[in-house]
Design a protein around this nucleic acid. Structure first.
Length: 586
RNA sequence: GCGCCCGUAGCUCAACGGAUAGAGCACCAGCCUUCUAAGCUGGCGGUUACAGGUUCGAUUCCUGUCGGGCGCGCCA
């Protein structure tokens, strides 16, 4: 419909240009929007306002000319000029009826678009360190990323979903060492566990597995393990130096193969847990990309070398620095540490260079907002190695604060008192979690009301939308009980009977759905879809409350059943994109 | 101190630079013999934090101030 009006306007503009009423230079961007108020018709364009300057004419006068130049259309009953120069289109109500046929014919494909056809994009999200279970912060990134990816897919893009496994680096060494130390405790060794080690219960479990499968194979005397290791913090030492020395000791005593076994056990157990958690949450990936693999293939070395060769890196204080300030970063960043180890940043440059090399037109990263300071340096690095930093779009997801009984749920990663994603899913269910997480745009701080998410009432937007879907199924069950059947072909012949304001509103909402998908996909903003579904549910519920569908008049009945059947289809399609179930009864 | 994000109705949040800034909740007044009351109708509620600027037009863009969150490591 929108396109049809845009075509009419384009025709008018071309006509005005041909007759010299409009200059031929300058582009005319034609924007047609659904109106907010019925007084302004069904669709409106601000074309005369945007072209006024170019045409050196008053907007309203230009609008007159445009309207005169418009070709006739049987779908448009009236065109008005209003306000400062808006052109309002009033549609023939029958123009909307066809959307019912379109939806029923397209089925689950209704809403899919083609803007992304032939374009490959990558969405990397969650990518939490495999050092422990996912918490509710990761949950938002998971729901958000999965939905953005689904939307892009629906908009026709070729989408690659990826999880970057941070399986290299110091944090993972700390994890591996923590596992080993817990294992040593189970072997009977006595010592103080390092304050900087990972203390979660799951570390004990992994240590126990190690012990069960290997007995004393990796056992070394505590005295040997802690010999000459700098003191830990409680004993007046430095906790960082303490844990680093323990990592080195683990590597020496266990040897490369033994260390790798312990390390990989920790990594794999936790990664499997994360994978399972996400899968249960309806979040799946095309690829799990290993940082360690990237390092082991020499990609990180090569990218550092490139920066060195091109003069973007320099040595200082025994380390190798990237001059990111040349590209607007606030300070230069270390690539290779004094101890010869490359930083996470160096690996990440290699990773992002690799992503772009893989030929994605656009690469989307979804990060927690606490990583925002990291964006300029990654973009700087991409620019320095000759890539276009604009191909990388980083979405920063703000934290979600949980509320229960009107009180903030206290969380602290430091003390280990964080709420896990799994706990949240258990408490409110996958559907509510997925829906609530994408109800706000990512840069918005979110208040997550657990009580609301759990409540089975219309105040809960998830139930409200799901119930609309279930209610339509219920109507069809009632139909059967009354001994009637739905004749879609008959309904199709009598769609003209749908003239009630509630029906026209519902039709307009259904017709707008594909555009919602496109807008949400291109803007990477899933909340548009969540809101649109709530509004669609609202239109349906009010319609339901005002009119009876199962009337004696078979023509009207079938037409209405076609309409609500189409509504059900759109609700199902939309919920599917959000990763929320569409129940048939509640 | 510097940087990024946010500031819209009592609360939670919307609004490609467009018309009279919208929803839901809460509150107030009505409604239930109905295909599910898990509902409906109406009402109340705003100097879009503040001050400038850009223009036909600013919640939206720019500058500054104030307030909240986050970050500022040779961790990841």
């Amino acid at each position: 419909m929108k396109q049809h009006l845009a075509d009419l306007l384009a025709h008018a503009v071309a006509g005005l240009r041909a007759t010299g009423h409009l200059p031929t230079d300058g582009e005319a961007r034609i924007e047609v929007e659904p109106t907010k108020s019925k007084e302004h018709g069904d669709f409106a364009t601000n074309l005369a306002l945007t072209l006024a300057k170019l045409a050196r004419a008053k907007p309203r006068e230009l609008a007159e000319k445009i309207v005169k130049a418009l070709p006739a259309s049987d779908r448009v009953v009236k065109v008005e000029i209003a306000g400062p120069g808006f052109i309002n289109f009033f549609l023939n109500p029958t123009a909307y009826h066809d959307v019912v046929n379109v939806i029923l014919a397209a089925g689950e494909k209704y809403g899919r678009g083609t803007v992304g056809a032939g374009r490959r994009v990558q969405v990397e999200f969650v990518s939490a360190n495999p050092t422990g279970p996912l918490h509710v912060g990761h949950g938002r990134g998971a729901a958000y990323g999965a939905t953005v990816a689904n939307l892009l897919d629906a908009a026709g893009f070729n989408v690659h979903r990826e999880y970057y496994i941070n399986d290299a680096g110091r944090q993972m060494d700390i994890l591996g060492t923590s596992v080993w130390l817990r294992y040593l405790e189970l072997c009977g060794e006595k010592f103080d566990f390092p304050v900087n080690g990972y203390k979660g219960d799951y570390i004990y479990d992994i240590g126990a597995t190690l012990h069960r499968e290997n007995g004393d194979k990796y056992r070394h005397a505590a005295a040997k393990v802690f010999e000459n290791v700098p003191a830990d913090e409680p004993k007046g030492g430095d906790k960082e130096k303490h844990i680093d020395a323990l990592i080195e000791r683990a590597k020496t005593l266990l040897g490369p193969a033994g260390y790798r076994t312990v390390f990989d056990l920790g990594l794999n157990v936790i990664l499997d847990d994360i994978r399972q958690d996400l899968e249960e949450f309806g979040v799946t990936y095309d690829e799990w990309y290993s940082e360690r693999a990237l390092v082991e293939t020499g990609a990180a070395d090569r990218v550092v070398e490139r920066l060195k060769q091109s003069g973007h890196a320099y040595e200082k204080d025994g380390a190798l620095w990237f001059r990111s300030t040349d590209y607007g970063d606030e300070k230069d960043r270390v690539l290779v540490r004094e101890n010869g180890q490359k930083t996470y940043f160096a690996h990440d440059i290699a990773y992002h260079a690799n992503k772009l090399e893989r030929g994605f037109e656009c690469v989307i990263d979804i990060w927690g907002a606490d990583h925002h300071g990291y964006v300029p340096r990654v973009k700087a690095a991409l620019a320095a190695i000759g890539d276009d930093p604009n191909r990388l779009d980083v979405l920063l997801v703000q934290f979600a604060v949980l509320y229960r009984g009107g009180e903030k749920v206290q969380m602290s990663t430091r003390s280990g008192e964080f709420v896990t994603l799994r706990e949240l899913r258990r408490e409110v269910g996958n559907d509510a979690a997925r829906f609530f997480y994408v109800l706000r745009k990512c840069e918005q701080h979110m208040d997550f009301d657990l009580d609301l998410a759990k409540s089975q009432s219309n105040d809960n937007p998830v139930y409200y939308v799901q119930y609309a879907h279930a209610r339509i199924h219920s109507v069809f069950r009632q139909l059967k009980e009354k001994g009637w059947t739905h004749d879609p072909a008959n309904g199709r012949r009598h769609l003209l009977r749908l003239t009630e304001p509630h029906e026209l509103a519902l039709l307009a909402r259904l017709a707008a759905y594909p555009e919602v998908i496109e807008t949400a996909a291109l803007a990477h903003e899933p909340h548009h879809l969540a809101h649109a579904l709530r509004e669609l549910a609202y239109d349906f519920h009010t319609y339901y409350n005002t009119h009876t569908f199962l009337v004696e008049d078979a023509a009207l009945r079938d037409a209405r059943l076609n309409l609500i059947s189409a509504t059900r289809q759109v609700l199902r399609n939309g919920l599917r994109l959000l990763g929320v179930s569409a129940p048939e009864s509640m």
